[in-house]
């Protein structure tokens, strides 16, 4: 394995953590247990959906607990067409 490959390889432990966070958030929601990440995901999705058509599985929300501070990561993949509409709307407004 090259040195670069070694550096790029992600530690499997953190992959495990992310996979678990995602699946458990869903399973808790299904079993009726409140889950912060799922609640946030649904509400953020509702706000975005008012303006842009987004696919549900293109939204990734992660909650990372660090020492003293937690970070909420929202990663939304917008379809190209809707991204264009957004720019178009912005340009119209600017004009």
């Amino acid at each position: 394995m090259s040195i670069l490959g070694f550096l790029n390889k992600r530690a499997s432990g953190s992959v495990a953590r992310e996979r678990l966070q995602l699946i458990l958030a869903h399973e808790r929601a299904e079993s009726g247990r409140p889950d912060l990440v799922i609640t946030l995901r649904e509400e953020i999705l509702a706000v975005i959906a008012k303006h842009v058509a987004v696919e549900r599985d293109k939204v990734k929300i992660t909650l990372e607990r660090g020492e003293g501070v937690s970070t909420l990561g929202v990663d939304i993949e917008l379809p190209l067409s809707s991204a264009n509409t957004l720019t178009a709307q912005k340009q119209k407004r600017a004009a």
Binding site: A11, S12, G13, S14, A16, R17, L20, Q21, L24
Partner: peptide
């Protein structure tokens, strides 16, 4: 193994 990143860390399991 946890130190090498090849195992879920204690903090990960506790957080989840």
């Amino acid at each position: 193994r946890a130190d090498r990143g090849d195992m879920l860390k204690t903090e990960d399991v506790l957080e989840i």
